[in-house]
Amino acid sequence: METATAFKLREPPKLVTRITLIHLIEMVVAGLLMVFVILPAIFNFSLLSTQFWNIYTRFYVTGLFGTFFYVALLLPLSVVLGFLMGWARVSRVRIFSWPASLYVNVFRGMPPLILVIFASLFGTSLIPQPILDRFFAGFRRGDIAVGIAAIAIGMHSSAYQAEIFRAGFQSVPKGQVEAAQALGLRPWQGMRHVILPQTFRLSLPPLGNEFAVLIKDTSILAAITGIELVAKSRDLLGILPASGLPIVWIFAVWTVVAVTYFVITYIVTRGLRLLERKFHTPGLEAISL
């Protein structure tokens, strides 16, 4: 007869493996080499120059916060929208599934730049005048337009996420839903304890990817005076000649920008992969494409 202490529930899997650490170290070393040794050697600039940072810092910080702001706004928005649309797509009720299909196909078929430009051009017309007056009276028309364009990027990403969630839903074997019913679980309980946990686990890998795409897509707002990293960096390039630094320092700017985006996407994707690993259960493999 087992004693009470002999029985333990299963332990969660290890989060950080040796390979993860090796790759991380490799990346940091290679990155540092590239940024401080190799590129300067080729292009003849140095990221350690105070003169450079004197002029660039304020552009960089403004731009970075702008980008963070958009990412913080759009990530949750796109997930919620994407999840709802994905759920609607698998519904048997056509009132939900058909409009959702239309939404997904339209927003996936259009390139984000086109969405951004047209959203900024006539996005404000889409908001009924009374709402504009009540909530957004204090904002300039141009700022509202950029905001709508940002939301358009979120909607573009949500369309891709809808497909990811849809596949997640459909990958849960139907028999398990039946089994949940047969146990006496109510439909919402079945959803919460059987379907959603599996959908979530199955969707995580492609989702991390999509988040990286979303973060990179915020750069498109630079095309229409959005306040984010790329736009601000271009502003700096405008005054670069006047600063006395040789023109080759353009590369310094772009290197910093590239590294910044790389770090952000890396953190987000690897973070999600850690999450993946934490919830991984044998038998629930990733959706195959």
């Binding site: 074997p173 028999g175 047969a182 006496g184 599996q198 259960t281």
Partner: peptide, 22 residues
């Protein structure tokens, strides 16, 4: 229906165990 299903248990051909649970 939930009450009915508590009175009568069912075992399926394809087991239908919840894959994400031990």
């Amino acid at each position: 229906h939930e009450w009915v299903r508590q009175q009568v248990g069912m075992v399926f051909q394809s087991f239908n165990l919840f894959t994400h649970l031990t």
